[in-house]
Simulated scan of single mutants.
Amino acid sequence: MATAEMPDHDRATHMFEGTGTVIAIDITAGKIGLDHGPVPALKWPAMRMAFKVGDDIDLSQFKKGDQVQFTLHKVEKGAYPIVELCEASGLEVVPRLCAPDGDQMPMPNTSGN
């Protein structure tokens, strides 16, 4: 559901969804390694990458081999962090599958801390 704070068209300009398989988790560092499919909105091919995750994501809920869907948040500088992460039942992106219920979308801590 689009909100006044973040209509769907605004979300599309800075939130990018993809799917992948968990290949590594570093809870202490707040990072997850994914073997992800293409992310057409970013012109990314399928590849293996490590991503920083937002503070609101509990990595202890995931394990190697899990199929997941993720949402990346566009930032001015540096790597795009994952701000939404949930289990997925397949390789096709389901729009807003991981979006939280409620009026506001989570915004990442991009301070690098």
Rank of each mutant, 00 (worst) to 15 (best):
R48C: 06
M47P: 00
G102F: 04
L97N: 04
A88W: 09
D26G: 09
E76K: 13
H14Q: 11
H73N: 12
M15P: 00
L85V: 07
L42T: 04
A4F: 13
E92A: 13
K43R: 15
R11E: 04
I27N: 02
G90Q: 11
L34P: 09
G33E: 03
N113H: 07
M107W: 14
Q104S: 14
T19R: 05
A12W: 00
M49C: 09
A79E: 03
E92G: 01
N109G: 03
E17A: 04
V94A: 02
P45K: 15
E5V: 02
L97I: 05
M49H: 14
P7A: 01
F70W: 04
L34Y: 11
A29H: 12
T71E: 02
D103W: 12
E92W: 03
K64T: 10
H36R: 07
G90D: 07
T13V: 10
D56R: 14
K43H: 13
M47K: 12
Q67M: 15
K64P: 10
K74S: 09
L72R: 04
E17V: 00
M49A: 14
E92M: 07
A99W: 07
I57M: 08
D56H: 15
M15H: 04
G78E: 09
G102V: 02
A46T: 05
Q67H: 14
C98F: 03
H36M: 09
D56Q: 15
L42A: 10
D35P: 08
A99G: 01
D8C: 01
F16G: 02
L42G: 08
S111D: 09
A4G: 08
A88L: 10
T110R: 13
D66M: 06
T21L: 08
D66S: 05
P100V: 15
G112Y: 01
G18Q: 05
H14L: 10
K77I: 05
R11H: 06
A50H: 14
W44C: 06
L97H: 05
G90P: 11
P40G: 12
M1R: 06
D101G: 11
P81L: 02
N113T: 13
S60W: 02
N113D: 08
I27R: 08
K64Y: 06
E87Q: 14
Q69M: 03
Q61H: 14
L91K: 12
V22F: 08
P95Y: 02
G90V: 07
P108Y: 10
D35A: 15
I27T: 14
D35V: 12
A2V: 06
C86G: 13
A2T: 11
R48W: 07
G30W: 04
D35F: 12
T21E: 07
G90A: 06
M47E: 02
P108D: 07
R48L: 07
M15S: 00
I32E: 02
D55E: 08
G33M: 08
M107S: 11
K52R: 13
T3L: 05
A46M: 06
V22L: 08
H14Y: 08
L91P: 01
A50Q: 14
V83G: 00
S111F: 06
K52L: 04
L59V: 02
V39Y: 00
T110A: 15
F62A: 05
G102C: 09
T13A: 13
H73F: 15
